[in-house]
Simulated scan of single mutants.
Amino acid sequence: MEWQQLEYFRVVARLEHFIKSAEQLAISQPALSRSMTKLEKELGVQLFDRHGRSVQLNETGRLFLARVERAMQEIEDGIEEIRQFHDPFAGKVSIAFLMSFGVHMLPDVIASFNRKYPDVEFALYQNPTTVILPQLLRSEVDLCIIGPFGEEPGVVWHKLVEEEMYVYVPADHRLAKRESIRLEEVAGEPFISFKPGYGVRTLMERFCGEAGFEPNIRFEGDDIMTAAGLVSAGLGVTIIPAFSGIEHGKVRRLRVTEPYCRREIGLAWIADRKLPPSADLFRSFIIEYFRGQGEL
């Protein structure tokens, strides 16, 4: 069994057509067919159900494809890792991060990092908490920026920053002229929230519970800008961290004096997984960046 055979198999499995696959691989269709027949003979099973020039991956083929994809990804990752070791300042960093963290903090960190290391590239995945941790555990990303989570063996979490959470109300709201409120003062209001599974949604429900009420959630969204837009339209109130880009003429930000409304954000990685040099470089940079912010 040869590497080239596995590459051919992966393309045919995806396209399920010999002629199209041969064109993509820049080989003749008969040569491709012979290669797949040889692979099936070596394995002792059929991987495809053939229908003329078209083929359909069968159950055995699907099982084999999953393994081939995984093996080839490992090899490709290894090649990329070797390349990065030869040029650690021109690699790629993959990061999954909380939706709300990407509005103001992460762009500033990356911009600062890229001024120092301009050739490092980033692959960014903005997701809710329920998606981020599985991405890290499956090694789909190098690092993730996430709030505290339950015990997860083999995962390191390093606190970066603590953010205050505010109540945002429409500019003509009865509380809009106040600087601060107790959270119980908006107990009867319609709430605009993130969807279940998002860290901000979990915090909102926790803070409201500490204030003695359950939030009346009327709208659920995916990002801070949508939540702020709905608040500015007078459709409700929300609890989110401070961020830029909001129209202050349409909404008001109120500090919460009771209960204590803050969240922790940290950086997580797999303890026994050796990070690519560029990712290791960024890990050190972001930790020092926020350590410096805390000393200001």
Rank of each mutant, 00 (worst) to 15 (best):
G147N: 04
I19Q: 07
A111P: 09
L267I: 14
V12E: 00
V109I: 11
Y168A: 05
C208V: 14
L281H: 04
R34T: 14
G266S: 00
Y260H: 10
M99L: 05
D77H: 03
A71R: 05
R50P: 09
Y289M: 06
V55N: 00
E179F: 15
L160N: 14
R291W: 12
E189A: 12
V55K: 00
L235H: 04
H158C: 05
I75D: 08
P196V: 08
C208Q: 11
E210K: 05
G102W: 05
E152N: 05
S21D: 07
G245F: 10
K250Y: 01
S193N: 07
D49H: 10
S278R: 09
I145L: 13
D49S: 10
G245N: 09
L43Q: 04
N216D: 14
S278D: 07
G236I: 14
A13W: 12
K177C: 06
R14P: 15
F207W: 15
E288S: 10
S112M: 04
C208H: 12
E214A: 04
V237S: 02
R70M: 11
L133D: 07
F282P: 15
F18G: 00
S35G: 03
E205L: 04
T202V: 15
L296Q: 13
E76I: 11
P128D: 00
L175D: 12
M105Q: 13
A90E: 11
Y125F: 13
F282T: 13
E264T: 15
I239S: 02
P170E: 01
M99W: 06
V45W: 02
D77Q: 06
S28R: 06
T130F: 06
G199L: 08
V141M: 07
L47V: 13
F219R: 00
G197I: 11
D49Y: 08
Y166F: 14
E76L: 08
L43N: 07
S180I: 07
N127D: 13
V120H: 08
V109R: 08
F191Y: 11
Y198G: 07
T226A: 04
N58R: 08
F9V: 01
R174Q: 14
